[in-house]
């Protein structure tokens, strides 16, 4: 009976892994077939030779970094304040943070365009609007990650301890709250990064250079290069996660060790 359970759990795990990796493997194999009859990295060479690849990719990285920064600036103080001062509103704020899940991106982007395309709010061409939009899209991940991080520390007592030692809000946020939810912020940042890197709709309709629309364009015109681009973005995203993981590790040890 027990053995059967183990066999089944292994079976399901293998099925899960195949489900996840087979398409990726197929994409990878396909990307190697640019030259008929042999496997080669030709499609990757073509890609790197295309200046648009680099500009669109680096644009997206910049959007992602700005989105993460804006997200931290907005959501850390918000989540902190809600926990500290109006904990009874937490369920409502949590629900609000999920709105991007229920509003389709296409609806959202037309809302943005309509609202911000005539004076006095003529900012539809500003990159700021794109970053702001991305921040909204990443809210469910960022806000929840931060809120979960705050739950792991005794926000109220730590705040009061700092206050009684003379600290103001700035010191409390930067010296006490931020460092203790670093790991949570990092995990939210990673998810935001992945979302921004793969995002198509907002960048396309706000007409900004970005990786998503670039791949979209490739798909229409090329056969093997889109597959190569997908693999690259996947690898880079995982690399980014690895870096975050490494950066976060040092602190994590201390936080997990608490009583």
């Amino acid at each position: 009976m027990k053995r059967g359970g183990i066999v089944w759990s292994w079976l399901w795990m293998i099925v899960g892994i195949l489900y996840f990796f087979l398409p990726l493997l197929a994409t990878f194999m396909f990307s190697l077939k640019a030259i008929k009859g042999i496997y080669s990295f030709k499609s990757y060479e073509n890609l790197f030779a295309d200046p648009k690849f680099l500009t669109s990719f680096s644009s997206s990285v910049i959007w992602a970094i700005l989105t993460i920064l804006l997200g931290i600036i907005i959501f850390v103080p918000t989540a902190y304040w809600v926990r500290l001062k109006v904990p009874q509103l937490r369920p409502i704020v949590e629900l609000l943070s999920l709105i991007p899940f229920v509003v389709p991106a296409i609806v959202y982007v037309f809302g943005l365009v309509r609202t911000y395309s005539h004076p006095p709010l003529l900012i539809v061409n500003s990159p700021g609007l794109l970053v702001a939009g991305y921040t909204v899209l990443s809210m469910p991940y960022m806000y929840r990650a931060i809120d979960t991080g705050l739950r792991a520390i005794d926000v109220q007592t730590l705040t009061e301890a700092a206050q009684s030692l003379g600290a103001g809000w700035g010191t409390i946020l930067f010296k006490v709250i931020f460092p203790n939810i670093r790991v949570a912020i990092l995990s939210g940042a990673f998810l935001s990064f992945a979302i921004v890197l793969g995002e198509y709709t907002l960048a396309q309709y706000l007409a900004k250079p970005a990786f998503g629309p670039y791949i979209g364009l490739l798909i229409q015109n090329k056969a093997y290069e889109p597959a190569a681009a997908t693999i690259i973005s996947f690898a880079l995203t995982w690399a980014a996660m690895g870096i975050l993981e490494l950066v976060g590790r040092g602190k994590q040890v201390q936080l997990v060790g608490g009583h």
Binding site: E160, A161, P179, N180, L255
Partner: peptide
Amino acid sequence: PNQRNVGMVFQAYALFPNMTVAQNIGF
């Protein structure tokens, strides 16, 4: 609270987890 010169000790210790003992005391 941060304008009064009053020291406070809590039941739950409330040490800052990210700081060493010396950094806590010097905060």
